[in-house]
């Protein structure tokens, strides 16, 4: 489904700030895989997400989705296959447009946009039904401007919009990190429901180890631009946070130094 082969990326090459952001990343996802990614700040998690979405291009290596090589394709062309939710709740929606207009934009992701009205009766009905899944009463506020919604509501809407057209790959980049615990829990629950419903192949970056263990069937840990640990479906269900800490020490020969990585 998704194949990353030998991805390398160096930032600020040839300057004193040179940083090896991604160092020979190989990752293969089968259809329906839900992989959670953990690692401390600067481990390369977000860089990898940006690499897949097309916001960044690798120095070398290849990115293949469904047999199509997307390595050199610009972001908007890849977006046909990739749904994405950002960490910033403001990033995934257009604030000055209404809820239904935002949904209409998401709805026409994989069709050629034309001079058809973005919202018609039939679509509005479909939008309503989809919004009901969020249990936030947004289905009765279709013409409210998205800028008026709370962070949690906007993130729930972003999630729905990203999964609307059932993309081949869903990228979640710490999408609960900017929310308070109860909202984060709600979004986590919605993520699980929406991913399971359409059996989406998903990559989720998180700082919250518990979340990384609770969700998905595979887990990878990154550090200094490398994937240092891969846990498959069989082992993941039995894994605990202390296990992960010991693994890290074992591999790196040093203690995990980020409290944030530990506590989320």
């Amino acid at each position: 489904m998704l194949k990353l082969d030998g991805i390398n990326k160096i930032f600020n090459e040839g300057t004193p700030d040179e940083k090896n952001a991604l160092d020979n990343i190989n990752l293969h996802l089968a259809a329906g895989d839900f992989v959670t990614i953990i690692g401390s700040n600067g481990a390369g998690k977000s860089t990898m997400m940006n690499m897949i979405s097309g916001a960044l291009t690798p120095d070398f290596g290849s990115i293949v989705i469904d047999g199509n090589d997307l390595t050199r394709l610009p972001e908007h062309k890849r977006a046909l296959h990739i749904g994405r939710v950002f960490q910033d709740p403001m990033a995934g929606t257009a604030p000055s447009m209404t809820i239904e207009e935002n949904l209409a934009i998401a709805y026409s992701r994989n069709t050629k946009r034309g001079l058809r009205g973005g919202v018609d009766k039939k679509r509005r009905e479909f939008f309503k039904q989809s919004l009901e899944k969020l249990h936030l009463n947004l289905e009765n506020r279709l013409t409210a401007k998205v800028g008026l919604l709370s962070g949690g509501e906007r993130q729930a809407l972003s999630l729905l919009m990203a999964t609307f057209t059932k993309p081949a790959i869903l990228l979640l980049d710490e999408h609960t990190a900017a929310l308070d615990p109860s909202r984060a829990e709600l979004i986590t629950k919605l993520t699980k429901e929406l991913v399971e419903e359409s059996n989406l192949t998903t990559l989720m970056v998180t700082h919250n180890m518990q979340q990384a263990l609770d969700l998905g069937n595979r887990l990878i840990m990154m550090d200094k631009g490398q994937i240092i640990l891969e846990v498959g479906a069989e082992r993941k269900s039995a894994l605990t946070i202390p296990d992960l800490m010991t693994e890290f020490e074992h591999i790196r020969g040093e203690k995990m130094n980020s409290d944030r990585a530990l506590l989320g």
């Binding site: 979405s53 972001e75 977006a79 046909l80 749904g83 990033a91 995934g92 447009m97 934009i105 946009r113």
Partner: peptide
């Protein structure tokens, strides 16, 4: 309209 509002968002919806 979305381009004027949030470029990053509209790009992620293949525009």
């Amino acid at each position: 309209r979305a381009t004027g509002d949030n470029k990053r968002m509209i790009r992620s919806f293949s525009a």
